[in-house]
Design a protein around this nucleic acid. Structure first.
Lengths: 189, 189
DNA sequence: AAAGTCTATATCGGGCCAATATATATCGGC
DNA sequence: GCCGATATATATTGGCCCGATATAGACTTT
C-alpha cells in the first residue's frame, strides 16, 4: 500500500484538493494512522489522474489561487477496494522520542523530564480532538479506529505520568557512575 | 536522526555485526521503536566507518562467511550524544492495519475479524517477549521504554478484544445499505 | 505597515527500504 | 542419509518517500 491508495481512501469520504488531503494526513485524524506530506501527495494525485482513478476539476477562486478538486471515479473505488483486500503490511513506526529515552542516561535529567512532559501534553491534545470527533456521525470503521486511538493514547499518557518521576529519580541515583558504566546486554533481543 | 544514529545507538550497548544490528532493528526490542533493514544499515555502517565514528574488525570464521564486527569509537560516542541532544522529530507511523479498518464497510466481515484476531495475537506475542526482557538487568531508560511498550500494547490488545464483536455486529446491521450509502464527513479533521 | 499565518500547488535531492543475489551450515523430519 | 527449511552473513538496486523550499495573494495580528 502506498500514498496513491491513501489518497483514494481519503477521497472515498468526499472530494478534496491536494491541500485538504495533506491536512487530513498530517494534522487531521488520519495522521495518527498514516502520515504523508506534499512531496508524496501531489505526485500521487497526478499519477492517479493520469490512470483515470480520479478526476480533477479546476475551480477558479476570487483572490486565492485556483483550486484543483479531485473526485474518486468508479474505477478508483474499485482500485481502492482491491488494494484494501490484500493483507496489510506490518506497521512501520519510527519514534525518535522513544529511541532517545533508551539512552536517557546520556541526557541531562531536565531534558528527559521536559521531553516526557511535552509528550504527555501532545497525547492529551490528541485525546481531546478524538473525543470531540466521536460526537459526530461516523462510519463504523472510523468509530472503531477512533476508539482504539483513545484507548492507546490514554494508556500511553497515563504510563508516562505515573512513571516519569521514578525514571528521573533512578537516573539521578546512578548519575555519578555514568562515566565508567560498562555497556549492558539485553537490548539485542 | 537517521539510520546512522540508529547504528551508533545499537553499538553503544555493545559491539555487533551488521546482521546483528538488523536483527535488533527488525525483530528485537528496538523494532518496536525504530525499524530498519539491510538496505539502510549496511550503507550507514560503511559511511560511519569512513568517517571514523565506528571501527570495523574482520573476523574469519570456519565455514560461515567472514564477520565484520563494528565498534563505537570515542568520536562515535560523542556524535551519538550530540544527535540525541537535538529535539526528537515527530513520530512517524504508518499502519496499514488501522487504515484498512477505517474502510471496514468495504471488506467482508470475516476478513475484518481475522485481521483483528491476528493483531491481538501479535500484541500478545510482543507482550510476552517484553515481559521476559524485563527480568534481565537493563539500563533505566531501557526499562522505562519497555514498561511503556507493555502498557501500550496491553491497552491496544484489550481494546481490540472488547470491541471486536461490537464492530462486526454493527457492520452486519448496515450491510444491506452499503450500496447506496453516501460519503460521510468527519474524517477531514 | 510589518510580520505572520492560511490557502494552494509544485519540485528536488537525498534518504530509506523491499526485494534480490550469494554462500555456507545446521537441524528436524522422512 | 538426504531434503527442505531456517539461520548466519554481506551487499546492491530501483523505486518510493519526504523534508525543505519556492511561489503568491489574502487575511490576521501586533
Amino acid at each position: 500500500m502506498d500514498v496513491k491508495t491513501l489518497c483514494l481512501g481519503v477521497l472515498f469520504f468526499g472530494d478534496a484538493t491536494g491541500y485538504e488531503i495533506r491536512k487530513a494526513c498530517s494534522e487531521g485524524m488520519i495522521s495518527h494512522l498514516y502520515e504523508a506530506g506534499y512531496g508524496s501527495i501531489y505526485p500521487a494525485l497526478a499519477q492517479l489522474s493520469g490512470t483515470g482513478l480520479v478526476t480533477c476539476t479546476e475551480m477558479a477562486q476570487d483572490g486565492r489561487p485556483d483550486k484543483k478538486v479531485y473526485s474518486l471515479t468508479e474505477a478508483g473505488r474499485q482500485a481502492l477496494i482491491e488494494s484494501l483486500r490484500e493483507p496489510p503490511a506490518h506497521d512501520r513506526i519510527r519514534s525518535e522520542f522513544m529511541f532517545g529515552l533508551l539512552f536517557s542516561q546520556l541526557l541531562p535529567n531536565a531534558e528527559v523530564g521536559k521531553r516526557i512532559d511535552e509528550r504527555i501534553a501532545w497525547y492529551r491534545d490528541g485525546l481531546e480532538r478524538m473525543r470531540t470527533c466521536l460526537g459526530h456521525d461516523m462510519a463504523p470503521g472510523a468509530q472503531f479506529v477512533t476508539g482504539y486511538g483513545i484507548a492507546v493514547y490514554e494508556a500511553a499518557a497515563n504510563y508516562l505520568e505515573t512513571h516519569r518521576d521514578t525514571l528521573i529519580r533512578t537516573l539521578s541515583q546512578s548519575e555519578d557512575t555514568v562515566e565508567e558504566q560498562p555497556a549492558r546486554e539485553a537490548v539485542g533481543r
